[in-house]
Amino acid sequence: MAGKKSARAESHRDLLRQMLRIRRFEERCVELYSGEKIRGFMHLYIGEEAVAVGVSHALTADDVVVSTYREHGHALIRGVPATTIMAEMYGKATGCSRGRGGSMHLFDVARRFYGGNAIVGGGLPLAVGLALADKMQDRNRVTVCFFGDGAVAEGEFHECLNLAALWRLPVLFACENNLYAMGTALARSHAQTDLALRAAGYGVAAWPVDGMDVLAVADAAARAAEAIRAGAGPHLVESRTYRFRAHSMYDPDRYRSKQEIEQWKKRDPIDALVASMKAEREITDDDLAVLEKEISEEIDHAVAFAEQAPVEPVEDLSRFVYSETSETSGRARVGPVEAAS
């Protein structure tokens, strides 16, 4: 029993560490944005960390992740180094997309992280196709596709749920329902606001879950992933969550009340996990301080890496429009930039 209990505590510490990494990384990003080190659109995940961390907990290194433009957290948890993420946001050559993507388009194929898609719903067909390729090549992988409540209004959501169900593809549809499509509340844009119900019409098993509870998300994702690996076809996990910050750095956040935001902050997924871990005597304040220090060092290192990173030469502007091969046959082999993590 003692072994089981300590394994559980270890798992909780890992979940906490991952959520904290996202939170602290993004808090640093805000400072860097204010300092004009990071530009363009930047969308923060703060408040929603339990979703990425809980869902990712169900994955192996061989699984595939397709994400949205609010993807710093997904990328970090997938193992994309904080250094190359930060360098990308700085627009540097050693960024994970060589400075061509920015905050919204992080990619790392070596970690099976297929991006950073900023067309709402646009990643779903890619996930269906990646899963189709796995199925046709007899690879037992799960493809996770993160998307928000806004994407459920897009035609691609409906087309893709049908197609994935029709072909019994190994896709875990991870819906991050944060209640707002940019500034439009769910109830202002959906006749049926129970999003899990929408999937049921396509024969896709769909479970709503408390997206502020990382253990609940992890449990639902694990059950879904297990069923998918067993050949049960696509599943949808709708995590009901909330973003504490505005939609993007440009958003004055006029469409929701301060009280509403404060109410949700009381359910902060990190605070909730820390409280339950303390109650179970799984963590002490000293442990927390050590964890915070480690994370702070990781982020300091990432910022230093990005600061000193070279920029892509302007002469390379038109690279990667077409593949760089010596002839027209054969796949391009231009790998991601390797960087110390």
Binding site: L124, L126, G129, L130, D134, E159
Partner: peptide, 16 residues
Amino acid sequence: SEAAFVGAGIGAALGG
């Protein structure tokens, strides 16, 4: 479902 099956073709191409 043109968007889905063209997009699935892109995904399948990415998947080998």
